[in-house]
Design a protein around this nucleic acid. Structure first.
Lengths: 239, 239
DNA sequence: CGCTGCTTTGAAGCCCTTCAAACCAGGTGG
DNA sequence: CCACCTGGTTTGAAGGGCTTCAAAGCAGCG
């Protein structure tokens, strides 16, 4: 059930059988949400964290004029709000983009898990730091990359992150996002995202149609984005 | 010596005398760096974390064309690279913006501190999550706010963060940044930052001259930025 | 078979960049 | 003590990338 999560953890750190069992025990129940469902609001007091098992969700902030900025996309195997364990309420909303299955881990159980297994605590801490790495890379995209590079970069990022949990291969991956949602990630308008996607398609790099990203030329796409996956810390970190 | 750090922690969580002593013991030594000195490079293996005692520093990423994006500014009392405790190497560089005094905490001591004091561990974890909150707010600025709002927002953020450690008051604060460095935070050119600062000055909101931010109309500045300090988690989080 | 939501395209305009040059203050050496 | 240099600030003019506004096209679905 939480196999994708363990798969992702083990891509970066070894996990013993005992640790795995303890992690599994921290899950209380699983729930299904429909698409476009905002299930965590900024400021709301939280006492559990949400592990995404299936589907796509995002963190976002609303502007007063109705615009929104998505600050991170979550793929299966991500803890969408593990940071609420220390923050207790969030500075942003979280919503589903597609129908989702999630598992819930009460903060009380996470606390016990961390105290019993300090190494697991560091791994959980690491995973929230990884969210910050993704945020930083988005800051670079939003601040310094033009629309084409920025879009290409996001598609590369999602390719790697979905690949880690077996949901992407060399040919591409399923991505049930609208162009408007992409625009909300990229700090662009949906009109311009549409033009950029056309440009990427006509350049023979990538095609995004009917909820699927088809990689026509991955090396070329990465070159356009100047994509370096190092920010995702794929290898083992300890000696 | 690490008084500003404790001051900042206590703005958000109570710290007992015993915990304070343990935190103090995790510091090995203090060092001084000159201005504009890059002392941590992306990818470099790290075995200690850097607590900023005095001065300003920043995290930044370089682009291939020589541009850079600053992803966060650090003020005294900030752990500039506490995340290296779990990441072991960083995805970005860290450099001083002014001459700085820092204290160094070996990862080995942080590990012991966390295992002996799980509550302190959660507070340290919280503080890296707070960096992520700041990153998210910058994503919103870079993605959705125009140059005027974005600049105003950053000046408001620094006002609050410096105020927390006694380095800002109602009249303003010292900020030894160049307009080019501001531009690197804001995803703008220094030319445009200059024009925006003039606009803020002529609107009677804020004046930035000779390394000092003079607040002429804080309420007005916050209104322009639509600044809400909630993302900095100033209050106590626990019941 | 006509909604509804998403995609696509065109035309006009604006915010910010680029390029260029003048200005200014502080520090250094003749 | 001033001439010079250097790094930062300021301003102008032109251009471009992205937005805005508008409307047509298209697919899935009741």
């Amino acid at each position: 059930m939480i196999g994708k999560y363990l798969m992702k953890l083990r891509a970066r750190d070894p996990i013993s059988a005992e640790e795995e069992a303890a992690i599994r025990e921290s899950i209380a129940d699983t729930v299904r949400y429909p698409a476009d469902h905002c299930f965590i609001r900024a400021g709301q007091r939280l006492n559990h964290s949400t592990l995404l098992l299936d589907g796509l969700m995002c963190r976002y902030k609303d502007m007063s004029d109705g615009q929104r900025q998505i600050t991170e996309i979550h793929v299966p195997g991500d803890f969408a709000d593990l940071h609420s364990f220390t923050l207790k309420h969030l500075d942003h909303n979280i919503m589903t983009l597609t129908p989702c299955t999630i598992a819930r881990a009460p903060h009380e159980r996470i606390r016990k898990l961390c105290e019993d297994f300090p190494r697991v605590a560091r791994i959980l801490w690491f995973s929230t730091n990884l969210d910050a790495c993704i945020h930083r890379e988005w800051e670079v995209s939003l601040g310094r990359r033009n629309a084409l590079e920025r879009t290409a970069h996001l598609l590369c990022e999602l390719h790697v992150r979905l690949g880690l949990v077996g949901l992407a291969d060399d040919t591409g991956y399923a991505l049930a996002l609208t162009q408007a949602e992409l625009a909300e990630c990229l700090g662009l308008t949906s009109v311009h995202v549409n033009r950029v996607l056309r440009e990427l398609r006509e350049a023979g790099l990538v095609e995004f149609r009917n909820g699927r990203v088809v990689l026509l030329n991955l090396a070329g796409l990465r070159r356009v984005a100047e994509f370096d996956p190092a920010f995702l810390y794929l290898g083992m970190r300890e000696a």
